[in-house]
Amino acid sequence: MKKNLLAAAIALFTMNARSQEIIPLYPQDSIPNSRSSTIAEKAETGTDGILRISDVSVPTLTIYLPAADKANGTAVIICPGGGYRILAAGHEGADVAKQFTEWGVTAFVLKYRLPSDEIMEDRTIGPLQDAQRAIQIVREKAKLWQLNPRQIGIMGFSAGGHLAGSATVHFDRAMIANPLKTSLRPDFAILVYPVISFTEELTHKGSREELLGKEAAADKVKFYSLETQVTKKTPPAFLVHAKDDRAVKVENSLVFAAALEKNRVKHDIYLYDRGGHGFGMKNSTSDVEWMKYLKQWMFNLDLILKKN
């Protein structure tokens, strides 16, 4: 009996030690641009091992803290992908966050609202509101997590890359209340097989339709075609894509890199010959680990210490 109790106590301690703090993006009953709804959030792990979260109406941040002796003051907010229909919250969220903590980076996985007329007054701005709010929270609470408020970046995969990219180019257009006039500009961006363009030639049709609807207004298409929105104030960016990606054409990353180059914004891009779409941190077709290139890039920008 005592052995069973001891085992249970150890199991409970281990579970608590591994658990992460989750904080809401907004005060209860104060989520902007929202409608009351009976939609219930779902989380399912498929036979492919991918955790998919759908019907998100209450956005949150899950916090991953590095060991105190590794922490370097840099933070990254991670936006999982999923075509603006679901969130691939494991291999494009939690797994990535854990890797960052090994580098001394504090990671925040953003569970953002997915576009829906049922839960939003304006579906086209809901996800961007949540990304901006995440940056706002992390910057305003930087002291709490011992962060440098000038080393807060954003990262996204696929449609999450579109969201992270939108926050990267539209930081000067606040979609949320910002009474302290906190900077909503991320200090760097990491975009992995991102949806960039909403043009007919390059867009991922599913992502565009989920965000803008089937009859997308021309001004919205331009606003969310991120390659047209880059300026000299756009923060540095690191991009990853596979040339054989059939879901999101590699040209998405290429046109964004070209826009960064034109505006003399620091950037780097790694292109795999193969790998398709959705590989997360590990492209099974290659021995090259793109995260190692990312680590070097962040070191070059003084965002991490090489020893980590």
Rank of each mutant, 00 (worst) to 15 (best):
residue 282 K to H: 14
residue 296 Q to G: 00
residue 290 W to F: 12
residue 254 L to A: 09
residue 292 K to L: 14
residue 258 A to V: 01
residue 252 N to T: 09
residue 254 L to V: 15
residue 297 W to K: 01
residue 285 T to I: 02
residue 265 V to A: 05
residue 274 R to W: 00
residue 258 A to N: 11
residue 291 M to R: 09
residue 280 G to K: 08
residue 256 F to V: 10
residue 278 G to K: 01
residue 268 D to E: 15
residue 275 G to H: 04
residue 284 S to M: 12
residue 297 W to A: 03
residue 259 A to D: 03
residue 263 N to P: 06
residue 272 Y to L: 01
residue 282 K to V: 15
residue 284 S to W: 08
residue 288 V to N: 04
residue 267 H to K: 05
residue 291 M to V: 13
residue 290 W to Y: 07
residue 279 F to K: 01
residue 271 L to N: 11
residue 284 S to P: 14
residue 289 E to W: 05
residue 275 G to V: 10
residue 275 G to A: 04
residue 277 H to F: 05
residue 255 V to S: 02
residue 298 M to P: 06
residue 297 W to V: 01
residue 257 A to K: 10
residue 290 W to S: 05
residue 296 Q to I: 14
residue 257 A to T: 13
residue 297 W to L: 06
residue 259 A to E: 07
residue 278 G to R: 02
residue 288 V to T: 14
residue 281 M to R: 12
residue 283 N to F: 09
residue 264 R to L: 11
residue 263 N to T: 10
residue 282 K to N: 12
residue 272 Y to K: 00
residue 261 E to W: 09
residue 274 R to A: 03
residue 275 G to E: 02
residue 291 M to K: 04
residue 277 H to C: 01
residue 283 N to W: 03
residue 266 K to C: 04
residue 258 A to H: 12
residue 263 N to K: 08
residue 271 L to K: 07
residue 253 S to M: 08
residue 287 D to C: 00
residue 294 L to H: 10
residue 255 V to M: 06
residue 263 N to M: 12
residue 255 V to L: 08
residue 291 M to W: 07
residue 252 N to W: 10
residue 294 L to G: 09
residue 297 W to G: 01
residue 274 R to L: 00
residue 265 V to M: 05
residue 265 V to P: 05
residue 270 Y to H: 15
residue 276 G to N: 02
residue 286 S to I: 10
residue 264 R to I: 10
residue 272 Y to T: 03
residue 288 V to D: 06
residue 287 D to M: 06
residue 279 F to Q: 02
residue 270 Y to Q: 09
residue 288 V to I: 15
residue 263 N to Q: 15
residue 269 I to L: 15
residue 256 F to W: 07
residue 278 G to L: 04
residue 291 M to N: 06
residue 261 E to S: 14
residue 260 L to M: 14
residue 289 E to C: 02
residue 253 S to D: 04
residue 295 K to R: 15
residue 285 T to Q: 07
residue 276 G to L: 00
residue 284 S to R: 14
residue 273 D to V: 09
residue 268 D to P: 00
residue 286 S to Q: 08
residue 253 S to L: 09
residue 255 V to C: 08
residue 299 F to P: 00
residue 295 K to P: 10
residue 285 T to C: 02
residue 256 F to P: 01
residue 269 I to R: 00
residue 280 G to Q: 07
residue 264 R to K: 14
residue 275 G to L: 02
residue 253 S to R: 08
residue 252 N to Y: 09
residue 258 A to Q: 15
residue 279 F to R: 00
residue 298 M to E: 06
residue 254 L to E: 04
residue 294 L to K: 07
residue 272 Y to N: 03
residue 275 G to M: 03
residue 298 M to T: 06
residue 254 L to P: 04
residue 283 N to E: 02
residue 272 Y to V: 01
residue 284 S to D: 14
